[in-house]
């Protein structure tokens, strides 16, 4: 297991390299002079030239690339002109907020979606099953930015139960903190919740018809135990394979959710930066999110091996398909 983790970690390096290259290429694809674009139409020629020099845009491309990779390797994502701060600092300011949002959404999605899928599968073709399936299909089809707006409309504007925007700090007490958190995390949880329900249901249905479930029943175990222990642990594998993808989608969804709720996270940072035409921030943040995703996938792969003793530790690639 230890060597497996180490080897998979080294496996990540090429992917991270490719991610960095992609971001570099996108940066250079900006039509026209990036410096001019960044500074906007009012900028003077001297300012633009100074910025070009500053950004290293006057160097040959391969030098720029080496420079860029070297900076990344030392954790330097560049400096924002509009915020006048290293991008790493901006990210470190915002990332915990996004993490809070994403983790609470993930918890909601898991705690609602998985049991819904289990119940649905164990009462296959019942009215309850159909309802869960219908609701979850609506869930996966949901434009969450609309859902967020609607939640604000009903629960903040009309009912006044929850604040429409912003994030509470824990200094203000737990209640306001949670009140701020509820609507955005429900918004962000919707799609993974529905996906978990669907995947759990279909893999539970597959597992429930297996012989070993009959064995478990023939031992005299009660049905709850058979389903939740014997069946669910086997059904977990497909759930884990979608988990990585869902986390990726949530990081994307966070951009929209944070915009609607003015949540001071990384998504909000990106959208603000786009408004301010501060592309360095956009690219740095996007790169950071991609790296996070790669690391999360490593963790998912490791979990995959933990729940699935059949998987051979020596072969690479488990969960990515």
């Amino acid at each position: 297991m230890g060597t497996y983790i180490i080897r998979r970690t080294f496996d990540l390096l090429p992917t991270i390299f490719v991610v960095a290259v992609i971001v570099f290429i996108i940066t250079r694809l900006i039509p026209g002079d990036p410096a001019a674009v960044m500074l906007g139409p009012q900028a003077s020629v001297e300012d633009i030239e100074a910025l070009r020099e500053n950004l290293g845009l006057n160097d040959p491309l391969y030098i720029q690339f080496l420079q860029y990779m070297g900076n990344l390797a030392t954790g330097d994502f560049g400096t924002s002109l509009t915020y006048n701060q290293p991008i790493v600092n901006l990210i470190m300011d915002r990332f915990p907020n996004t993490l809070i949002l994403a983790v609470s959404a993930l918890i909601i999605a898991f705690m609602v979606g998985v049991p819904a899928g289990i119940i649905s599968a164990s009462k296959q073709n019942s009215l309850l099953d159909y309802s869960v399936m219908l609701v979850s299909l609506i869930g996966v089809s949901m434009p969450i930015f609309w859902l967020g707006v609607m939640l604000v409309l009903y629960f903040s504007v009309n009912l006044g139960w929850f604040p429409a925007t912003g994030m509470g700090t824990l200094d203000d007490g737990l209640i306001p903190f949670i009140k701020h958190l509820i609507l955005p995390s429900i918004t962000l949880a919707t799609i993974p919740m529905a996906t978990f329900a669907r995947i759990t249901r279909s893999s539970m249905l597959e597992v429930i018809s297996q012989d070993y479930i009959k064995t478990a029943r023939s031992k005299g175990l009660n049905e709850f135990w058979v389903i939740c222990k014997h069946a669910f642990k086997n059904a977990l594998t497909p759930l884990l394979t979608v988990l990585g993808m869902q986390i990726s989608m949530m990081l994307g969804g966070a951009v929209l959710t944070e915009t609607i709720f003015s949540w001071p996270g990384m998504g909000r940072l990106i959208v603000d930066a786009i408004d301010k035409r501060d592309f360095v921030v956009v690219q740095g943040t996007v790169l950071f999110i991609a790296v996070i995703f790669v690391v999360v996938n490593l963790l998912v792969d490791i979990m995959y091996k933990v729940v699935n003793p059949r998987v051979n530790y020596t072969t690479s690639k488990g969960g990515t398909k």
């Binding site: 012989d211 029943r217 023939s218 031992k219 005299g220 175990l221 014997h230």
Partner: peptide, 24 residues
């Protein structure tokens, strides 16, 4: 009935490759 199963009456199935739970 549950207290009969596996206790007073138990059962072995045809295919040993699939009748044990692979994850325990």
């Amino acid at each position: 009935m549950r207290s009969v199963r596996g206790n007073e009456i138990s059962m072995i199935f045809q295919d040993p490759m699939t009748s044990l739970n692979p994850v325990f």
